[in-house]
Nucleic acid binder design. Sequence first.
DNA 1: CCCCAATACTTGACACATCAACAATCGATT
DNA 2: AATCGATTGTTGATGTGTCAAGTATTGGGG
Lengths: 158, 158
Amino acid sequence: MEEMSPLQREIRQGKPFRSRGQEVVVALLRTADLVRRAVSRAVEPHDITLQQYNVLRILRGAGEQGLPTLEIADRMIEHAPGVTRLLDRLEAKALVRRERCRQDRRQVLCWLTPAGTALVETLDEPVDHADIEAVAMLSPEEQDHLLHMLDAIRTGRK
Amino acid sequence: MEEMSPLQREIRQGKPFRSRGQEVVVALLRTADLVRRAVSRAVEPHDITLQQYNVLRILRGAGEQGLPTLEIADRMIEHAPGVTRLLDRLEAKALVRRERCRQDRRQVLCWLTPAGTALVETLDEPVDHADIEAVAMLSPEEQDHLLHMLDAIRTGRK
DNA sequence: CCCCAATACTTGACACATCAACAATCGATT
DNA sequence: AATCGATTGTTGATGTGTCAAGTATTGGGG
């Protein structure tokens, strides 16, 4: 009698996975989805989405000098069109200010407004808490190991 | 001089992460995004999305007896409304057949059409290949370890 | 047998991802 | 200085995720 993996049971799939790689990929995508939802719930009470929060956090990191749109897109793994519209919504909420750059008029520089700064700071604690909770069942050593393996997957090499 | 983590460099963030949990969560979400895109590229040439492929794969697992809409939603981590519309598009492409259940007329049973079955089978190999490639830099033992940690995160306990 | 809470969806509204096409601007070249 | 290719976005179309509200149907209690 073959043992069924937890994941296999989870998706009620009789057939075993065709490869370990497949099982890892499915587990990775499902786990990320769950974690994303958990962290989302930490920011949603303040009427922004996780992606909007990410933009705010990136802009805070940039500080006074601001960031052009495509720079923001780079730091998320995201394509430019999405970022333009994310910024549209954040500007509508007065959390972000945009202005065409004087030196290079192709660029549009973005900054946090005071309200935007205040909001990210408010969210620091609940988000930290959600992040820590999400992986709290792993020991610090395991978390480090997980981190290294995820780094390896992203860089494509050991 | 503090060492910068690969991830920290990746997102060009000067500040260190406020907690290891935060770094793990960011790494998990970014990695899953990359992997999802890679696997997506394997199915897109056949004009379906990864989610549509997931539905087809789930329905193949169900076989002759078919599956009600909410059962499909359960096996993806997804809410019903999304699945209804996914099925709308798959039915429009004649990959899926739907019929109201005679015993319980609230349910809508779904099956693969022959074309749907053929398509999933065509995609088995390219998807397997993409899955294996995505995590190929990890040894089998590391993959097992990764799998266990992801299982732990999803179940919320060791 | 009738009513009513629960079940299984479906629909509408909005946020977001992705691709392709377009617009504006810059820099370099002629 | 006029032009051309590259850079930096924006816009439109389609697919998907999510929540709230609505519809059809079932099963059970009065």
